[in-house]
């Protein structure tokens, strides 16, 4: 495990994480800080989703998070499965690719695109308020349907303010493969419309609120740098399927 410099920047080229090696990045976001402090990111999401994934399945993840989750999903689906990782931000995309490469993940496929309603280009700031001031960039827009996936078992959307547009461009894929959907909600203003967009596809939706701090973290750290912080996520399954999630709040 690397140490943290007084300036808050990493001083070693790699972090040893729970599911592989990760290149050090600037600690200007929660995912990077968690990888640096705990050797893992949003582990409670991992706990839930690893109970849903199986070998040979296909996953599409929108928002790379430095491939932190692609590392374990690649192992879960195994050599006969696939993990598709879409990351529109140029540097983030390259950092994710680096982690995929140094861990030798043959079954991970990366896509430098924003998954939206149609094809084209747009500034990142026009799509999402994620970018900091002065970091806006043009990104390429594509639809999920345009990826022409042979199978899809899980659609995982990490970026906020992206859910409705992504689903709008994934109609054919969702109708064909009926994947599970796991998404981060975008806040008070958009949560209702986002849940309605999922239900409009014939899905049932349950709430999932994982804490960012995992007491049983990989580094064994007792220091909680995310005290009380949770993510507002949802998990959705086709209403005509057998999926039951009785212990979760259905929305």
């Amino acid at each position: 495990m690397s140490t943290k410099s007084p300036a808050g920047q990493a001083t070693q080229p790699f972090w040893s994480t729970r599911y592989g090696i990760a290149t050090t990045v600037a600690l200007d976001n929660a995912a990077a800080r968690s990888l640096q402090a705990y050797g893992e990111w949003a582990e409670q999401e991992t706990t839930l989703l690893s109970a849903l994934l199986d070998e040979g399945q296909t996953v599409l993840e929108f928002g790379g998070d430095f491939a932190a989750h692609a590392l374990w999903m690649s192992q879960v689906v195994g050599p006969h499965g696939q993990v598709h990782l879409a990351e529109p931000r140029r540097i983030r995309f390259q950092q994710a690719c680096a982690n995929v490469a140094i861990n030798g993940l043959d079954n991970v496929f990366t896509h430098p695109v924003w998954l939206g309603r149609g094809k084209g280009q747009a500034s990142l700031a026009s799509l999402t308020p994620l970018g900091r001031a002065g970091t806006d960039e043009k990104v390429r827009i594509a639809t999920v349907d345009s990826l022409r996936l042979d199978a899809l078992h899980l659609l995982k959307i990490n970026l906020s303010h992206a859910l409705v547009d992504t689903l709008a461009g994934a109609g054919e894929t969702i109708r064909t493969h009926r994947p599970l959907i796991y998404a981060r909600l975008s806040g008070l203003d958009e949560a209702q419309s986002e849940v309605e967009a999922i239900k409009a596809l014939g899905y049932r939706v349950w709430s999932h609120v994982p804490y960012l701090y995992n007491a049983n973290n990989h580094s064994g750290s007792d220091v909680n740098i995310f005290p009380g912080v949770v993510q507002q996520n949802v998990i959705a399954a086709p209403a005509d399927g057998h999926f039951e999630f009785a212990e979760r709040l259905e929305l």
Binding site: R18, Y19, E40, T46, T47, N216
Partner: peptide, 10 residues
């Protein structure tokens, strides 16, 4: 049972 996430699965 004491493992978390995908570690348990593996």
């Amino acid at each position: 049972a004491r493992m978390s996430g995908a570690t348990r699965l593996f």
